[in-house]
Every structure is written in structure tokens, then in C-alpha cells.
Design a protein around this nucleic acid. Structure first.
Lengths: 137, 137
DNA sequence: ATACCTGCAAAGGTTTTGCACATAC
DNA sequence: GTATGTGCAAAACCTTTGCAGGTAT
């Protein structure tokens, strides 16, 4: 496991406490938080950090390929430190977003190529359904 | 082909000129316009219609299942009167969004079911690439 | 030393809301 | 006649931006 310090140096990012906190938190969670959620979660430890800084850090991470942006259709973005292409699923009842890690859909790009004039480079796949917890309630 | 009048009656929607214009326009285009684009396009014929009315009409259509909302990750929504589940593709150069009509990905839901505890109900699939026009330029 | 990052406040863009008036049924 | 829709302006969100001061290298 590469350290955050090394990862940042590799991408030529300055090692600021704020950036480290944002990235570390994203690495530690599977919840695909929004900028607002990240901001609120880090608030206790970084009471002076502003929401704008969170957004700037996230956009920088996306640019250098350390983080991917999700849009499940809520009207805001969520962030995932797993940049490997993988589908996501959202519970339409509680709203949580999970990874579907064991399925890779990159081969879909080739399959669909026959049906379009585009050169396909990537995809984003979202499933919607009802999670285990919500089914039992 | 069912008339818009009949379609609206079936869904118990009042037949207002504004709603008819919005839905008719959506039916006539393959461009997956945003609310703003719809508003601007209808402006000449409906100069008094407000943007809020466009949004309210669209949200009503989505609720009754006459229109689907897309979010390719631009920070706004686009609308599609083809409610049949089908993937979309966006050109990362010019930004246009096309349908991929000949491919249905509903069987994906079953395939992915094995890898999750969710009951999967639907999916949204977006491809990204370079369109024919942009490739030749 | 300097280039870059942060924090703040303000602005920008998209979508929603409240309410008075208008209109479809 | 009544319930619903429209138009307007204001508000609510989410995200970006400009800038002065601060910090990592």
C-alpha cells in the first residue's frame, strides 16, 4: 500500500493537511460522500477548513486521476477514491450508494461500439434498487 | 402513434398549451435538451412561458413516466421523451448526447444481481467518447 | 523566494417554492 | 365551481471564483 505522501508527491501535489485529510477520509470510507458530507465529517478535526477548500481539493484530485466523480442523479456530485472503473448502485429508499466491485463493465465499451459511430473511451454505470436493510424494514 | 392529447388524458394531466409544447418538442428532438434549452427553443412561440413552468412540466412528466431525466455529469439535467431503458453516449469534445437505441441493457440487471444484496430495478448507463463529426475535425 | 494553497465572501448557475392570477375540466 | 397550472420573483442549493494572506517546497 503506497502512502498518501508518496501518492501526492508522484502527482506533484503540495502536501497540505487539508488535502491529506480529504483524501484520507475518501480512502477510508465506502460511502461515496458529497463535498458537503466530507466537509461536515472533517469539521471537528479541521474546524477552520472551508467548503471551498474541499471542492478545490476534490477537483484537483479528479484532474490528476486520484478520485472519480459520481453523479447518480441527485443534483450533486459524490466522490470515490476507487478510480478503477466499476459500477455503482443506489438504494432508491435510503439513498445510499454502494460499489459493485466484482463486475467490470469496460468490455461493454467494445460490445456497444458496433452500434455507434463514436470512439468509446469510458462508461459510467448506475444501478437502482432496494438494499438489504431497506428490504427487511 | 398515440396523440399527445390522449397520452395526457391517460395520465390525468391537464392539457395546457405550455405542457403540450414542452412534450411535443421533446418528442421531436433527439438532442436530450436541458430545461434551459427547451425554454429558449420555445421562447419564440411561447414568449410568456416562464422557465419555472418548463421545470414544473418536466417534473410532472417524469413523475407520471412520460419523460426520463438524464444526468451525464454536467451539473444539470437533460430530458428524454424516450422512456424505454436505453444507454446514452456523450461526446467529450462537443458535449452532444446521443441514444444507443439498438442495445438494451436491462438484462444487465440480472447479471449483476449475483454480486449484490440489492433487488435491482433499473439502471442508467452512460458512455463517453468522440463522435464522428469531432473525429473528422 | 516563489509558486501554490487556503479561507472568506461574493457570485454564478441550476432548480425549487410561494403566491396571486388564470385556465382546464 | 374547483382543482390545478402558470408566471413572477425570491429563495434554496450546489459549485466556482477572486483575492489577500499563508504555507509547502
Amino acid at each position: 500500500m503506497k502512502s498518501i505522501t508518496d501518492t501526492f508527491k508522484e502527482k506533484k501535489l503540495k502536501l497540505t493537511p487539508q488535502r491529506i485529510a480529504v483524501y484520507k477520509y475518501l480512502k477510508s470510507t465506502k460511502e461515496h460522500p458529497s463535498a458537503e458530507t466530507i466537509y461536515r465529517t472533517l469539521q471537528p478535526d479541521f474546524p477552520t477548513m472551508s467548503l471551498a477548500t474541499v471542492y478545490k481539493a476534490l477537483n484537483t484530485f479528479v484532474e490528476v486521476g486520484l478520485v472519480q466523480e459520481l453523479n447518480v442523479g441527485e443534483g450533486n456530485f459524490r466522490y470515490d477514491s476507487n478510480v478503477h472503473s466499476h459500477p455503482h448502485i443506489q438504494c432508491i429508499t435510503c439513498g445510499k450508494v454502494d460499489d459493485i466491485d466484482l463486475v467490470s463493465l469496460t468490455e461493454l465499451n467494445n460490445k456497444v461500439s458496433e452500434f455507434t459511430d463514436y470512439t468509446i473511451l469510458s462508461n459510467k454505470v448506475y444501478f437502482y434498487g432496494i438494499c438489504k436493510d431497506c428490504k427487511s424494514n
